[in-house]
Design a protein around this nucleic acid. Structure first.
Lengths: 192, 192
DNA sequence: ATGTTTTCTTGATAAATGTCAAGAGTTTTA
DNA sequence: TAAAACTCTTGACATTTATCAAGAAAACAT
C-alpha cells in the first residue's frame, strides 16, 4: 500500500530512488475496519495521514450530540486536524472510516524534516495547502450564498466520486441541512 | 505607511536592515477613498495587498445581484484573491474600501522571489496560510452547525475589532443571513 | 446647513427548512 | 439466515428565516 503513496508523490513531482526510499522508511500502514477511528476528540494529532484505500469522515459533535461533518477523504486525499497538528492541543474532531480503509501514516517530525530535505516536497505540500484553502473558500461561498437545493447540486458536481459512496444523510450533515430536507430535494429533482 | 508594513514584518520574524530595504524597494502605496475598488470582478489579481490603514471588504455578486461578503480586512491583515493569483484567471471577487484606506502593494513576481530569498519570510507566509486555512475551517463549522443567532455571537466574539467598524447589514451578508434577521437577533439579545 | 443616501428597525406575510414519528427497504452482524 | 441496525422516505406540523414595504434615524456630501 505504500506503493499507492509513492505513485501519488511521483505523479506530483519528480522523485528519485533515494527520496522514494526516504519516504518509505518513515511510512507506516494503518488498516481500519469500517466504523473504526483514526482520531478521536480529545486526542492530539501529530502525524499526516494519506488515504490509500477507503473513505474517511472528519466530524465534530456539538453539545446536543449532533454530528457535523467537516470533510470526507477518499483515495489519494489527506486527512487530519491541522489545528491540533500545529498547536499540539487536543483535537475537537473525530476521524472515522466509512469503509474498510488503509492509511499511510507519517509522523510529524519526519514529515516536517522531509519538507526541508526534499524542497520539491515542501513546495508540493504548500501548493496542496493553497488548493485546500481555495476549496474551503468555495465551500464558504456556497454555504452563505446558496439554497439547500443549490448546495446539494454544487456538492454532487464538485465531488461526484464521493456522492455515490457515502450515505445521503452524511452529505446532508456536510452541507448543514437536515437529512429529511435532502431527501425531499432529491425527490424534487427526480420529478423534473 | 511602508513603516507600518515593515513594523508588522519585524514583529513576525527577525528582519535585517538589508532585508527591510529589499521589501521597501518593491512596495508601493495605494490610497483608496471610501467606496473605491482595489479589485473588480473580471480583473486578474497578481499582487499582494497589506492593509496599513482602513477596512476592506471582499465580496461576490450573484446572478440576482445579491452581494455575498467573503472577507473583511483591517489594519495588519492581507487582502486579495488567491485563486486568481495562482491561476492567472479573472477574479470573481470585488475588493472595496469601506473607509479611506492605505494599502501596501507588492507585485507577485517580487513577492514570490522574496519568499525564496528570505526563507524566514517564506516560512512566515506559509504559517499565515495555515492559520487562514484553520480560520476558514472554523467559519465552515459555524456555518453548518450554528443558528443565525449563534453565528452572530461567534462573529462578534471572533472579530470584536471589526464588529463596530462596519455596517450591520454587511455582517449579515458575511454570515449568510438577511439584514432584517440580524436586526431582530440584536433586538432579542438587547432585551435579555 | 440641508438635501440625499445609507442604515436600521418593525410589521405582515411567505417560503424554506427543521423536527418528530412511523414505516419500508436495505445492509450488517451475530 | 434471522435479528438488529441503519438508511431513506413521507406526512404533519413547528420553527426559523426571508421577503416586501414603509418609515425613522443616522451619516454623508455638496
Amino acid at each position: 500500500m505504500i506503493d499507492v503513496f509513492l505513485n501519488y508523490l511521483s505523479d506530483k513531482f519528480i522523485l528519485s530512488e533515494e527520496e522514494s526510499y526516504a519516504f518509505s522508511r518513515v511510512c507506516t500502514i494503518k488498516k481500519l475496519r469500517r466504523r473504526q477511528y483514526l482520531l478521536q476528540q480529545g486526542d492530539v494529532w501529530q502525524k499526516n495521514a494519506f488515504v490509500a484505500k477507503g473513505v474517511l469522515r472528519t466530524y465534530r459533535v456539538d453539545e446536543k450530540g449532533t454530528e457535523h461533518i467537516m470533510q470526507f477523504s477518499i483515495e489519494n486525499w489527506w486527512a487530519g486536524d491541522r489545528q491540533s497538528y500545529h498547536s499540539g492541543l487536543p483535537s475537537a474532531f473525530n476521524i472515522e472510516a466509512l469503509e474498510d480503509a488503509e492509511i499511510v501514516l507519517i509522523p510529524k517530525a519526519d514529515f516536517d524534516r522531509l519538507e526541508i530535505e526534499i524542497p520539491k516536497f515542501g513546495e508540493f505540500t504548500r501548493s496542496l495547502l493553497e488548493r485546500s484553502f481555495i476549496a474551503s473558500q468555495n465551500r464558504i461561498h456556497a454555504s452563505i450564498s446558496y439554497s439547500a437545493e443549490e448546495k446539494y447540486a454544487d456538492f454532487t458536481k464538485t465531488y461526484p466520486d464521493i456522492t455515490n459512496r457515502i450515505p445521503q444523510h452524511m452529505i446532508a450533515s456536510y452541507l448543514g441541512i437536515s437529512p429529511e430536507t435532502l431527501s425531499r430535494i432529491r425527490n424534487q429533482i427526480a420529478k423534473k
